[in-house]
Design a protein around this nucleic acid. Structure first.
Lengths: 186, 186
DNA sequence: CAGATTTTGGACAGTTCGGTATAGTTTGAA
DNA sequence: TTCAAACTATACCGAACTGTCCAAAATCTG
C-alpha cells in the first residue's frame, strides 16, 4: 500500500502547517512541497483542500485527546487529582515549542458558519474535550460534575487562548489556581 | 473636510466586515464596494490593507471597552457588583445578533507573530480589558485584586470563545456562576 | 516478469488577491 | 468664482490561489 504512506505524510504535514499558519493562510502548493508529494496525489486521495482539512482535524482530534488524557493521568497520583493535573498537561502543551493555539478554535474562527463541516468538526472535538473534563470532575467527587466541568472547560479554553495571545508561561498555572477554587467551592 | 467622512465610512465598514469574516478572508475590493469608496481613497489615506486593519482595531478597542464598561456599570447597583454584572454585559454582547467572536482574538490568531503590529494591537486591547477587570476586582474588595482579575479574565476569554464556538446562550451565565465562586473564595 | 494501480512533474485554467497608474470629476474654502 | 485638494472610475500588474489534464515513471501484486 503505497497510498497509505503518501496519504499519511500528506495529512501529517498539512496538520502541522495548518496549526502553524491557519487553514486559509497556507496554500496546497506549500503543503505538497513540504510533504514531498505531487498535487494529483492530494486530489486523487481527498478531492479538495477542504477534505484534507477535515482529515487533518480528525487525526488531530484523536491524537490530542489521547495525548491530553495520558499526560493528565500520568501526572495524577489519584483519579480525584486529574481535574487539576489537567492544567499541568495544558502547560506542557503550551510550552511545547510548537504551540500556536488550538487548531479547532482556529478552524471555528475561520469557518464560522455553524453548518460548515469544518466548524462541526471543531464542535465535535470540543465535545470530546468537555467529556474528558466531565469524567475528571466525576472522579473528583464533585456534587454536580456537569456544572463543574462546564466551568472548568471555560477556564481551559480561556487559558488556551490567553497562552497563545500573550506567550505567558504562567497562564496554565493561573487557570489551575482558579480551578482549585472552583473545585473547593463544589 | 471631506476626507474625514470617507475615512470614517471606510474604517466602519472595514471593521464590520473584519469582525464578520476575518481579516485575511475579506478582500479590499469587497470592503470598498460596501463602503461606497474608491480604491485610491483607501491607498491615499492608509497606504495598505494592514494600516486599515490597525485603524479599525484602534477604533474597536476604544469603542468596545467603553461600551463594555457602560453596560457593566449600568447593570450594577453598587461598584462591588461590577465584577459580576460584567458577565451580563458579555451576555448582551454575545446575544447582540452580530456577534462573531472577539476581533482581537481573531487578529492575534491570524497574525500570530508576536512582533506583528496587528498582534501587538490585540495585546494592547486585552491589556485594557484586563485593566477594567482589575478595577472591578478592586471595587469588589478582593484581598488580591490582581490575582482575582487574572482568573476572571480567563473566564471572560473562555466564555467569549465558547459563545462563538457553540452559539450557546447560557455561556455567559455559566461563566458568571464560576466568577461568583472565585469571588467568594477570595 | 507482467499488468494494474499510483505517483510524478509540469503545464495550464480561471479566479482572486493587494496594490498601482492615470486621467478626469467633485468638493470645500478663499 | 477660482483653485487646490480630495475623490472617482477603470484598467492594469504580478503574484498566489484551488483545481485539472496528461503522459511518463515508479511501485505493488499476481
Amino acid at each position: 500500500m503505497r497510498s497509505k504512506k503518501k496519504k499519511e505524510q500528506l495529512v501529517d504535514t498539512a496538520l502541522r502547517l495548518f496549526c502553524h499558519h491557519g487553514f486559509r493562510a497556507i496554500g496546497v502548493d506549500t503543503i505538497l512541497a513540504e510533504a514531498g508529494v505531487a498535487k494529483m496525489t492530494l486530489y486523487n486521495n481527498f478531492g479538495s483542500k477542504e477534505a484534507l482539512i477535515l482529515a487533518a482535524l480528525k487525526k488531530r482530534d484523536e491524537e490530542h485527546i489521547a495525548w491530553l488524557a495520558a499526560e493528565t493521568e500520568a501526572r495524577a497520583a489519584a483519579p480525584e487529582d486529574r481535574l487539576l493535573t489537567l492544567f499541568e498537561a495544558l502547560d506542557a502543551w503550551f510550552a511545547g515549542g510548537d504551540f500556536h493555539g488550538c487548531p479547532f478554535l482556529k478552524a471555528s474562527d475561520e469557518f464560522d458558519n455553524q453548518d460548515d463541516p469544518i466548524h462541526r468538526a471543531a464542535l465535535e472535538h470540543k465535545g470530546h474535550l468537555l467529556g474528558l473534563i466531565r469524567e475528571y470532575a466525576g472522579a473528583a467527587g464533585a456534587p454536580d460534575p456537569g456544572r463543574l466541568a462546564g466551568e472548568i472547560y471555560l477556564l481551559v479554553e480561556g487559558a488556551t487562548v490567553v497562552a497563545q495571545l500573550t506567550d505567558d508561561r504562567s497562564t496554565a498555572a493561573r487557570a489551575r489556581q482558579a480551578a482549585e477554587a472552583l473545585l473547593a467551592a463544589g
